[in-house]
Design a protein around this nucleic acid. Structure first.
Lengths: 226, 226
DNA sequence: TTTTTTGTTCATTCTCCGTTCATATTCCAG
DNA sequence: CTGGAATATGAACGGAGAATGAACAAAAAA
């Protein structure tokens, strides 16, 4: 379940936000100031923080900086209308978004959704997509359209690596280091063979991607631009 | 320079946004409807799009979907206060942010900055640009518009070197030393052939750059002044 | 066990592309 | 205008690197 930390010195606002967010299906942690917020973050795992700017002891900007230093979660800053000039400060601190008070709870929801999706996108490495092709790193399956294929390990790892760094050339040496490990003793040409097999396996199945050769350098995976 | 596409059927708003964004140092393209927007995107390379929701022919959501299918740029949707219910639709289409009209230009600026920074994050340092042309030193690819070309190694290295020192003459000797290395034994005329190949490859593809001959001295790359 | 799959090596074939060379064209000094 | 020097261009070659097919050992599945 997605957990959200809300930080505000006004208990009424905390309560309002809590009700609204819980209704949306989030797990909510409340903090009345910066120190409490950091304490919660230390103990619990939160996916996003909503932080008020005006707070005693530690203002929202400072807290945001602190959070961003320690954790990789998005932060939404709440600012009063009069402080609109200060927004730049907030962004400079690495905030991902802000909201001007008073705001509709609905607006907050949308922002939260959008930010979470953005972060999930980057965080969820277990599924790779390009066009019609999906690579599921948990099941070691490659899906094209509605058919799915189970690849041999090395082939899968190779494709997986290439597809997660599209349009980038890798030398055989690099690929072996990444996929086989530093201690691999064998021949670099092994890569060639797996590339060959990937190519003949997929060339007539999809044009979502293509493995190209850069003579004298290595291989790269080209994704289809639509 | 960062280029922003603004799409709105209201000419006054277009003009206002244009003035504001140009003042901020952006290059601005204007489109009065979806079709025009897509046309511009096809021809020019834009880094971000600002799209009004209410437009004739093609609404902002549809346009956004279309843009996101074709290009990898963030989109900011502009919605009227009354349409706040529709926001979800916009996000579902893959929009990166939205703004409720009327908004302060400053607010737009901040959003743009934030989004661009987020996207730049993914962008790479090993990229050379001039006009519509992008040289990706990681993929050994040259992109012109939205088509990309994989060059032979030496041609790529030569172009790469020239384009990173535009308007500067280099002797064949110098180029050989830089690209082939000090130990190259061959004929200086080799450079000529690669220059020839670059020229015939790109002369009809783009006028972003041009390789010129300085008789008795060497070659230089001229970039298009806009 | 037998059978199949998978990872690697090896030998052969093939192809690309960097280079050279021969010829045509352009430039400019005189 | 003209001849000689520099550059452009077309063509061809040769070799290095890549593709490919086959073979084999090891592991997994039957």
């Amino acid at each position: 379940m997605t957990a959200i930390l809300i930080v505000d010195d006004d208990k009424n606002i905390l309560k309002l936000l809590d009700i609204h967010l819980v209704k949306q299906g989030y797990k909510v942690f409340q903090a009345k100031d910066g120190m409490e917020a950091l304490e919660i973050l230390r103990k619990e795992s939160c996916d996003l923080a909503v932080v008020d700017v005006m707070m005693p002891f530690m203002d929202g900007y400072t807290l945001t900086k602190e959070i961003r230093n320690l954790y990789d979660i998005p932060v939404i800053l709440l600012t009063a209308k009069s402080q609109i000039e200060d927004k730049e400060l907030g962004f400079q601190a690495g905030t991902d978004d802000y909201l001007v008070k008073p705001f509709e709870p609905k607006e907050l929801s949308y922002r939260i959704k959008a930010l979470l999706r953005r972060y999930d996108h980057q965080a969820d490495e277990s599924i790779l997509r390009t066009g019609n092709t999906t690579i599921n790193q948990k099941s070691y399956e490659v899906q094209i359209g509605n058919r799915s294929y189970l690849l041999p390990l090395k082939e899968f790892e190779l494709l997986s690596y290439l597809i997660s760094h599209p349009r980038q050339v890798f030398s055989r040496e690099h690929l072996i280091e990444q996929i086989w490990g530093l201690d691999f003793q064998g021949d670099e040409r092994t890569v060639d063979v797996h590339i060959k097999r990937l190519r003949q396996r997929f060339s007539k199945l999809t044009d979502d991607f293509q493995i190209k050769t850069v003579r004298g350098v290595g291989y790269l995976l080209e994704v289809q631009r639509k």
